[in-house]
C-alpha cells in the first residue's frame, strides 16, 4: 500500500486555508529555508539514534538500526526534535491515504475541508490523489500548501482533483531564493502562472524578512506575472518573520516592524491587490 510519512494531523485549524480544516503535515522537504519554522519536518529520520538516550518518557528506542517511537508513552516535550542533528523527527508515522482519511473523518461535521502541508506535500502526488478522492466523497475541499518548487503542471490528474494551492513565493530574485532555500525558483514562477491560469491559486504568501527576503520584488514580480483581474482576486498574505521554531542563524532574529509591513501592504495595494492580510 502506498504510504506517506506523516508528521502530524491537526483535527482543526483556522490558519490553513478558508474556514475550519484538518491540517495534515507530511514529512520531508526538497528545500531548506533558513527561516523554516518547523525544520524538524525537512528530512526523514536517518536512524542515528541521537534522540533515544535522553527521552524523558522512554518513548524512543533503537530497533534494527531504526528509531522507533511509542506514541502512547510520549509526553510531547519535543526534546527529540531539539537534539536532532538532521532536521528530522522520530515522531513520524507512515500512513496510507485511507488511514489519514479515517483521522479526517473524526473531525466531520466541524470542517469544510483538508489542507496538506509539510514538509512539501508536492513530493507525494499519488498519495495526495488518493487522499483527495476519498475526501471528496465526504464533500470536503482539498488544498495543498506548497513551496512551489515541484512543477505541478506535470501532475494534471492531481491538479484536476485538487481544489487549490496555497503557494509560497519566498523571494523573486534567483540568487536571493538560492541563499534562502538552497535551490532555484524558476519552477515557483512557472507554478504561479500555471495555478492562476487554471484557477487553482487559493492564496500567495510571502514571509517577510528584510535583508533576507526581497518582498518588494516578490510583490512586483507577482503582479507582472499575473493579469490585473487575477491580482485583484488573489488573497495575498504578508507574514512577518517570527523566530519561533527556527533553527540556525535566524533563531534569534527579530521580526520586522509593523511600519515595514504596512509599507509592503501599500506597495501591494498600488499593484492592484485587494485582499491583503498582514500576519
Amino acid at each position: 500500500m502506498l504510504t506517506a510519512p506523516i508528521n502530524k494531523i491537526l483535527p482543526y485549524s483556522v490558519v490553513d486555508g478558508p474556514g475550519n480544516r484538518v491540517a495534515i503535515f507530511v514529512q520531508k522537504c526538497n528545500i531548506h529555508c533558513a527561516y523554516c519554522h518547523n525544520p524538524e519536518t525537512q528530512n526523514l529520520c536517518s536512524g542515528c539514534g541521537a534522540c533515544v538516550e535522553g527521552c524523558p518518557a522512554g518513548a524512543l528506542k533503537m530497533e534494527q538500526g531504526r528509531v522507533v517511537w511509542d506514541e502512547k508513552l510520549c509526553c510531547g516535550c519535543d526534546r527529540c526534535i531539539k537534539v536532532c542533528p538532521n532536521h528530522a523527527s522520530p515522531k513520524v508515522t507512515p500512513m496510507t491515504a485511507q488511514q489519514v482519511f479515517a483521522k479526517v473523518c473524526e473531525s466531520i461535521p466541524f470542517i469544510r475541508g483538508i489542507t496538506v502541508s509539510g514538509g512539501e506535500c508536492g513530493l507525494y502526488p499519488e498519495f495526495l490523489m488518493e487522499l483527495f478522492r476519498l475526501a471528496h466523497t465526504k464533500g470536503l475541499s482539498c488544498l495543498m500548501d506548497s513551496n512551489g518548487t515541484i512543477d505541478l503542471s506535470r501532475y494534471p490528474e492531481l491538479m484536476e482533483i485538487c481544489d487549490g494551492v496555497m503557494l509560497d513565493v519566498k523571494s523573486w530574485k534567483e540568487e536571493t531564493f538560492r541563499q534562502l532555500t538552497g535551490s532555484g525558483n524558476e519552477v515557483v514562477k512557472k507554478n504561479l502562472k500555471y495555478l492562476a491560469d487554471s484557477e487553482k491559486l487559493t492564496e500567495v504568501r510571502i514571509v517577510c524578512l528584510p535583508g533576507m527576503v526581497d518582498a518588494e520584488d516578490c510583490i512586483l514580480g507577482i503582479s507582472r506575472t499575473l493579469s490585473g483581474e487575477q491580482i485583484r482576486r488573489l488573497p495575498l498574505k504578508l507574514i512577518r518573520f517570527r523566530h519561533f521554531g527556527v533553527k540556525g542563524a535566524l533563531e534569534n532574529h527579530p521580526s520586522p516592524d509593523l511600519a515595514y509591513m504596512q509599507g509592503l501592504e501599500a506597495l501591494a495595494r498600488a499593484q492592484g491587490f485587494e485582499k491583503i492580510l498582514i500576519l
Binding site: 483556522v14 475550519n20 469544510r112
Partner: peptide
Amino acid sequence: STAERNPAALLDIVKGAFQI
C-alpha cells in the same frame, strides 16, 4: 487572538456543533 483571523472557521465549528 488567532481566531480573529478566520471567523469563517469558527462558524464551521458552530455549524458542526449545532448539526450534532
